[in-house]
Amino acid sequence: MGEWERVERLDSAWAAAEVARLTGVELVVEGPCRGGEVGAAFVRWPDGHRSVLKWRPGIRVAELERGPLAVVEVLRAVGYPAPRTELVVQVGDAVVTVQELMPGATIKRWDDELLDQVLELNALQAGVLAGTEIPALPLYLHSDGPGFCLHEPLRQRDARTAALERRIAAVEVETLAGDDAVHVDFHPGNLLQTDGKLTGVIDWDGAGRGHRGFDLVTLRFGIKESKRLDGLLDELPYDVLQAAWATMSLRMVDWAIRHFPPGEVDYWVDLAEQRI
């Protein structure tokens, strides 16, 4: 067992034990999830059905319920394949959720047929949050996000990333206007498919209200290259594309500087500079 898996098992065992202590529900931890969900494990209920247990530190149940969990419930009501939440428990300063295990495996090979299905899902996100109090998504273009979208690593790395950070911070948008549901982390690792058919979209922890074009920009950063998707991005309103691209550039370049080998950083800077 690798160190990563050992730590994941310890965390999931702790989370399951706390759920049992607080609710009386005994969940058997089967092992960590891979390929899209950090801080998540497969669990089995007393009746035998399987689910996904997740934990998120530094948040309260009420914050999740008026944000990401509410977004998912609205989307499920219109037929969107997002996981049902089966249990929510406050454990100290963290929230543990147990969610439906969606069918399928993460996408390994991208093609236009999958993009067609993604666009159908993206259309379902349009306007569904109108009249709700779900908060608009912050973009972190002028201040740091909570552990991601940090500005200082770009300022400090070299002249090129420092110049990129200045262009990002010059985008004068705080949030994306709109009443669309936005996933925020819409990449192939969070899309499930069986035999080429999309069966589920997972990992909605950051979801909120804004413009659904943000998810298409996120997807573009996740699939590396797609002329067709680039053409679709060109059709987005300029302010949406500019703000979403700036946010994803900040997110990925910052993360690459802090977590990826040095040789990989330039790839993300090259991609960022295509539209900034």
Rank of each mutant, 00 (worst) to 15 (best):
P81M: 03
V43A: 01
E37S: 12
R21M: 02
W14S: 03
A17V: 09
L69D: 11
Y80K: 01
D11F: 14
C33M: 04
P57A: 10
A41S: 14
R50W: 09
A62H: 03
W45A: 13
P83W: 06
V52Q: 06
S12N: 07
L69F: 14
L69C: 11
Y80N: 02
W55M: 02
A82S: 05
E73G: 08
P32L: 03
V71P: 00
G35Q: 05
R44S: 03
D47K: 00
Y80F: 15
V7W: 08
A70W: 05
D11N: 14
G48D: 13
E65H: 07
E37V: 12
K54Q: 10
G39S: 03
S51G: 13
V19K: 12
G31E: 01
G35Y: 06
I59W: 05
R76H: 05
L75V: 01
R76P: 03
V19T: 12
P57L: 07
V28D: 10
G31S: 01
T23Y: 07
A13E: 14
V43I: 08
E73Y: 10
L10E: 15
A62Q: 12
G31T: 02
F42Q: 11
A17T: 15
V38S: 10
R60P: 02
P81W: 02
G31L: 05
G31W: 03
G48M: 13
L64E: 05
Y80W: 06
A16V: 15
F42N: 08
C33D: 04
L53N: 05
R9C: 04
G48E: 14
V7T: 12
P68A: 15
K54I: 00
F42H: 14
A15M: 12
G39K: 11
G39M: 03
A70L: 07
V78A: 00
A40S: 03
G24C: 06
L53I: 04
P81L: 04
D11Q: 11
W14R: 15
W14E: 13
P83T: 09
G31C: 10
E73M: 04
A41Y: 08
V74F: 09
A13H: 09
L75R: 00
